[in-house]
Simulated assay, not measured.
Amino acid sequence: MEAVQELIPLAKEMMAQKPRGKLVKLYVLGSVLALVGAVLGLVETVCSPFAAASRLREEAAAAAELRDARARQAGQALRPPQARPEKGPKRPPEAPPCSRADRQHAS
């Protein structure tokens, strides 16, 4: 509130001195930027507790997911591998569909 009370005499003094147009535009631009900065700071201050709480919830969920994944991996490591019955004779693996020998031209 004190800053507003100081701005009014400053504006009156500037108008009494008949400043150039560029100087007035510069002061107006600076004032607008200062006002925008103050509003953004206020919004950030008001919203920061909510952002911190959501960030903590996300970190807790990620930690729980990691714990579950590690527990699953540890549980699978303790189990003996199950023997799968073979369905037929083993065939050699097939070549990929596009190998160097199949190319029509060099790259």
Rank of each mutant, 00 (worst) to 15 (best):
Q82W: 04
A38M: 13
P49F: 01
Q17H: 10
A83I: 06
A106P: 06
Y27M: 07
R55W: 01
V46Q: 00
A60Y: 08
R79Y: 03
A52Y: 10
L35T: 14
S54Q: 15
L42Y: 15
V32F: 00
A11L: 08
R103C: 06
C98N: 15
M1E: 13
P93I: 00
P49T: 00
A60T: 10
L29F: 14
S48M: 05
A51G: 03
L40G: 06
A38V: 13
P80C: 03
G88F: 05
P92D: 01
R103I: 02
P89F: 02
E58L: 03
S48V: 05
L78K: 13
S31A: 11
L56G: 04
A16Q: 14
L78N: 09
A62K: 12
E94K: 12
R100Q: 09
L10E: 12
G37A: 05
A3M: 13
K12D: 08
G30F: 08
G37K: 10
F50D: 03
A106M: 14
Q76A: 12
V36N: 05
K90P: 03
K22C: 00
Q73W: 13
S31I: 09
V28F: 01
I8H: 09
K18L: 02
Q5W: 15
V28A: 00
P81H: 09
E13W: 10
K18N: 02
A106Q: 14
S99I: 07
A60I: 07
R57M: 02
R67W: 00
L66A: 07
D68E: 10
A101L: 01
V36K: 10
P92F: 07
G21K: 15
A69Y: 04
L33F: 11
L7N: 08
A51V: 14
P93M: 03
E94V: 07
Q5C: 08
A62N: 07
G75P: 04
K18C: 00
R67M: 07
P49M: 03
A106F: 14
P93Q: 04
R57C: 08
A95W: 07
L7S: 01
A71Q: 12
R67V: 00
L23Q: 13
R20T: 12
Q82F: 02
K25V: 03
F50Q: 09
A63K: 10
V43H: 00
D102K: 11
G37T: 08
A74Y: 06
A16C: 02
Y27S: 04
